[in-house]
Each structure stands twice: as structure tokens, then as C-alpha cells.
Amino acid sequence: MPIFHVPRINPSEITPNEVFLNRRNLIAGAAAAGLAAVLPKGSAAAAKLDFAKSPLSTDEAPTPLEDVTSYNNYYEFGTDKGDPAANASTLTTKPWTVAVDGLVARPTEFHLEDLLSSVALEERIYRLRCVEGWSMVIPWIGFPLSEVLKRSEPLGSAKYVAFETVVRSEEMPGQKGLFQALAWPYIEGLRLDEAMHPLTILAVGLYGETLPNQNGAPIRLVVPWKYGFKSIKSIVRISLIEKQPETSWNRQNSGEYGFYSNVNPQVDHPRWSQATERPIGTGGLFAKRKPTRLFNGYAEQVAHLYTGMDLRKFY
């Protein structure tokens, strides 16, 4: 049985709530007049969430909110880092349902509002490491994925969990056009023991409020010891299956993006080193790089999942 050593959070390293709220209020006040006109039917402005602090949080200072919400990958809205923030307001996120099916005794379809009323939300301040070589620290709000899986009662034959993102080309401009960056829907997968691990969460918010569309609203996966593209956004289906599922980036280029995609500074991407990373929000393109840690710093909690595996072969 693994022993979890819980890091302590230094309150001085977390953005003071009053500073965060004042900044948000200033931004909201400037934008309020025009926001209602551009929000599509079914969209909602950020709402505050009730949550408890988690002892599983890192003690590192979170990346500034403006960087978290303006620098990210979400190819359904475009391939540039600023495209999701510019284009994602078109996505309707309410109402929202998530189907849980496959090798389960109780297949079901959750209405997100009902699901959230039955779980205890936590703030999990996690490191995020992108396969491209940059990193963030994000205060997610969510709950363990295992809670949803247990309710559906996985059968003994279930070995993997497959995830699927919404397809709405009329609302997601990156899904339109003759040339597509990826085949849609975006799909991802985990081994069942990875999915049931206490660090694996479904996130519905960040920085104390509901998720912005560009960050995967209204519900996304967060697996902090894997590269960021494993943490699939805007989930509509979770399936329990027997065999290893396809994933979008592995299907696109299996030589560059493995199924596991655990953060590993000793296994380079074919086109760049993974030994170091560039923290976002600490100096822009000229930010000092720092060493990348095995499993993104979560080795003590998750290394046992891969005992006996060749991490170069199962990258």
C-alpha cells in the first residue's frame, strides 16, 4: 500500500483572495456592458464555488489567473495559444450531461448540476506540465474521478477508461474546415488504476470559480503526473472498456505521443528535450527554465503504478 506524504501549503505563496477578487472585479466592471451581448444562449458567467482546501495540493505559488486563462491548447477553438480565449465563448455549457457506460453494472447519464450537488468539491493546487516544455501551477476545483466510476460499478473485465470530448462544429471553430488539426472527437484514456488514483480529478473550476470555456468548461479531467494533453476537456462520455483505447495524439503520431505520456525528463520528445521546462507567468519567453521532475514531482504518490515497466518503451 503506497504511503502518501502530504505537502503543506504555505499561505504566503498563494495569491491573496482580496487581491484576486479586486482584480477580477475591475476586469468584470470594464467588460460587463459588452459581455451579455456576446455570450451565447446557455453560456454563463463565472460563478463562485463552495469548496474545501485539499491536503494533496502542492506548496508552489499558482500561476497568475490571466496566464492560466489566456495561454493554453484547445484545438477545437484554434491552434494558437490565444485562440481558445478568443473563440471559446461560442460554446454552450449549460445544460450539460456526461454519459458513463461500457463495462459497468449501472450505466448512467449524469446531468452536471445533479452530479455537483452530490459531491464535495476541493481545491487542488496542481502542477501542470505541457509536452511542449512549458508549465503552470493551477488551483483547480474538483472531485476525484473515482467517485463517478464507483457509482457506475465497474465490472471485473474493465481495465481501462476512455474519455470523449463534445463535438459541436457550429460552436467550436477549430472543428470546421477542410484541414483539421486532429480527428474529432478528441479522445483520451487511462488505465483503470490510474483513473481510480486519488490524485486524478474531474475539475469544474479554477481560482475559486467555475471553469472558463477556454480551460475545458464545464468539466474536464486533470491527471497531474501526465503531460497536459492527457487531461481531456469538455467531457461528454466516460466509458469503461477491456482493451487499451485509442487516444487523439497517439493516433495522430504514435512515435511522439505515447498512451501513458507520464512526465519524464529522461525521455525526450523526438524534436526537443524534456529535461527542463519554462514556467508561464514568470518572465514570458525569457523565463528561466527549471528542471523537470519525474512524474511532474508526484513520483512518491504514483511511481508504484508503473513498477516493472520500461518507461522508455511505455512512454
Rank of each mutant, 00 (worst) to 15 (best):
N296C: 02
E300Q: 12
G281S: 03
Y306Q: 05
R271E: 12
A287E: 05
N296I: 00
G297A: 02
L305N: 07
R293A: 00
P291M: 01
N296L: 03
F295A: 00
F295E: 00
Q266C: 12
W272F: 09
Q266A: 14
F295S: 00
P270F: 13
I280L: 05
P270C: 11
T276G: 06
H269D: 13
G308H: 13
Q301G: 06
F295Y: 05
D268A: 15
Y306E: 12
G308S: 12
G284W: 00
N296D: 04
T276N: 08
R271V: 14
S273R: 09
H269F: 14
F286I: 11
Y298A: 00
E300V: 09
N264T: 05
N264H: 04
A287G: 05
N264Y: 14
L305D: 05
S273D: 12
R289E: 09
Y306P: 02
H269M: 15
V263I: 15
T292D: 03
T276A: 08
V263S: 06
V267A: 15
L294R: 03
A299T: 02
T292N: 05
N264C: 07
T292G: 04
R271W: 14
Q301H: 11
T282A: 05
F295R: 00
T282L: 03
G308C: 14
R278M: 11
R293D: 00
A275C: 11
F295D: 00
P291S: 02
R289G: 03
N296T: 02
T276V: 14
L285S: 14
L285H: 11
K290I: 14
Q266E: 15
G281R: 02
E277T: 15
L305A: 09
T307W: 01
W272K: 10
P270D: 10
V263M: 08
G297E: 03
L294C: 01
A299V: 02
K290E: 06
R293W: 01
V263P: 04
K290N: 03
K288I: 08
P265I: 14
K288S: 10
F295I: 01
G297Y: 07
K290C: 03
N264E: 06
D268G: 04
V263T: 07
V302Q: 10
L305H: 06
T292R: 09
F286R: 06
G308A: 13
H269I: 15
R278K: 12
R289L: 07
Q274N: 15
P279M: 11
W272A: 06
Q274W: 15
R293N: 02
P291E: 05
T292Q: 06
L294I: 07
G283L: 06
A275L: 09
P270S: 11
